[in-house]
Amino acid sequence: MMNILAPSILSADFTILGEQIKETEAAGAQYLHFDVMDGLFVPSISFGLPVLKSIRKASNQVYDVHLMIEEPIRYIEQFAEAGADIITFHVEAASDPREVIDKIHSLGKKAGLAIKPKTPVEAVKSYIEHIDMLLVMTVEPGFGGQKYIDECTDKIREARDLIKEKGLSVDVEIDGGVTMNNINVPLKAGANVIVAGSAVFNGDIQENVRSLMAEFEIV
């Protein structure tokens, strides 16, 4: 499967957000990762629909929206209308994950399902054939700048093995703690969509994107 970099705007400078998004696109980043936090499912509050709608015109990237909110079914339609291409929600946050998946697909969007570091891959096994992407969190969701949790590498491998076993073409995305020094770890374990925040937006954005994506060819 194609390896994809998804810069997370959670680490961007919001005074020049549009410019920085364009820099990630110019350097070749295919996706843009958009973290939505509600202060309930996770302790933090981030940004939501108005921001997504306003930045949708900033680039032609795939807008990868990660909902860290309770009962995401309530907002699927609004995020689809605001410009999301992929909508990912947490299995731990939905009363009926299959209902949410079906809702996302009914709106013509790709559906992703996410698991926190302590949630086993088994929790999404019954949904794996119905989703387009599985997001394995490699930090506790809710805050940027955390260190990659090494124990999550086995979960990435387990997720990829499950997908292969079933003969599916589901992407495995990872989010949290990625740096130039460890990006090869999740890639080798089977992840093919890599979210990176600080590693992209701290310093020279275009150079950071190119350097991170260069690792795709090495692994």
Rank of each mutant, 00 (worst) to 15 (best):
Gly177Phe: 04
Pro141Val: 12
Ala84Ser: 06
Arg157Cys: 09
Asp132Lys: 08
Ser54Met: 13
Ser44Val: 10
Gly177Pro: 04
Glu158Phe: 12
Leu52Val: 01
Ile163Lys: 04
Asp132Tyr: 07
Ile86Cys: 02
Pro97Trp: 07
Met68Lys: 00
Glu165Lys: 10
Val136Gly: 04
Asn3Asp: 11
Asn202Arg: 14
Gly142Ala: 12
Val195Trp: 05
Asn192Val: 05
Ile174Gln: 03
Pro50Ala: 08
Leu162Gln: 05
Lys188Arg: 15
Ser8Trp: 04
Phe47Asp: 00
Asp171Gln: 09
Ile21Tyr: 04
Gly108Glu: 12
Ser8Asp: 02
Met137Pro: 08
Lys22His: 11
Gly48Asn: 01
Met37Gly: 03
Glu71Val: 12
Lys155Tyr: 03
Leu10Ser: 00
Thr153Tyr: 02
Gly112Asp: 02
Ser126Lys: 14
Glu129Cys: 12
Ser211Gln: 07
Phe34Asp: 01
Lys53Pro: 13
Met1Arg: 14
Ser126Trp: 15
Asp204Phe: 13
Ile115Cys: 06
Ala27Lys: 02
Val172Arg: 01
Leu17Ile: 04
Ile86Ser: 01
Val195Arg: 04
Leu135Asp: 00
Val219Gly: 08
Ser95Trp: 15
Leu67Pro: 00
Val36Ala: 04
His90Asn: 09
Leu162Phe: 08
Ser95Asp: 15
Val200Pro: 06
Glu217Trp: 13
Glu140Val: 09
Gln61Val: 09
Pro43Leu: 09
Asp171Glu: 11
Ile101Asp: 01
Val185Ile: 15
Thr179Trp: 14
Ala189Cys: 12
Thr24Tyr: 01
Val124Thr: 07
Gly145His: 01
Met133Ile: 14
Gly39Lys: 11
Val136Ile: 13
Thr119Ile: 12
His66Arg: 02
Gln78Tyr: 13
Gln78Asn: 09
Ser54Thr: 14
Ile128Lys: 08
Ala29Cys: 08
Ala27His: 00
Ala189Val: 06
Ile21Gly: 02
Val219Lys: 06
